[in-house]
């Protein structure tokens, strides 16, 4: 488990809105975060490895490493954060489950759960990143 601060910046929201198709999004100092904006907290995660880092070679995650693929995502909104807030993100391992693959073999699904709380300690958003990879290990 790890925690870091995620400042919700109006310019970042504008940039994100344009990137997801609202091409003419204007700067709004009081903007509400778009539905999937919490994923951009990764920018502030010191352990995030999908970026250039001085302490690692690039690229850090190759398919042959068996790290799997991003299969899905779920956001639960307890309150929609707005520009100007600073949230605390806490990342933890979630549930793990297995399914039979269509081509035989077993698929392992694993959740990474990030909770975002505001300055008053109130839960704003829960995000569940679901990763999948072929599982070749024999389980008990």
């Amino acid at each position: 488990m790890r925690s870091f601060e995620f400042p919700i910046e109006a310019g970042h929201i504008q940039e994100f809105k344009r990137a997801v198709g609202d091409l003419d999004a204007s700067f709004d100092p009081d903007a509400a975060a778009p539905p999937t904006f919490m994923v951009a907290a990764d920018r502030y995660d010191p352990d995030y490895d999908r970026r250039l880092r001085s302490d690692r070679s690039w690229p850090p995650v190759a398919p042959e490493s068996g790290s799997g693929f991003h299969a899905g995502m779920v956001f639960e909104y307890h309150r929609h954060p707005r520009a100007g807030e600073v949230l605390t993100a806490t990342v933890a391992d979630g549930e793990e489950w297995f399914k039979q693959g269509r081509r035989g073999g077993q698929l392992r699904f694993r959740e990474i759960v990030t909770t975002f709380v505001d300055a008053d300690g109130q839960l704003c958003v829960t995000a569940r990143w679901i990763n999948v990879r072929a599982d070749n290990e024999v389980r008990e």
Binding site: V20, A31, A32, P34, P35, T36, F75, E76, Y77, H80
Partner: peptide, 21 residues
């Protein structure tokens, strides 16, 4: 995120309780 633009169109910017895909 692109799909979320359709959700914002019908739910508004703060109308969602949950979104999964």
């Amino acid at each position: 995120g692109i799909t979320g633009e359709a959700l914002v169109a019908v739910f508004g910017p703060e109308g969602l309780d949950r979104y999964g895909a």
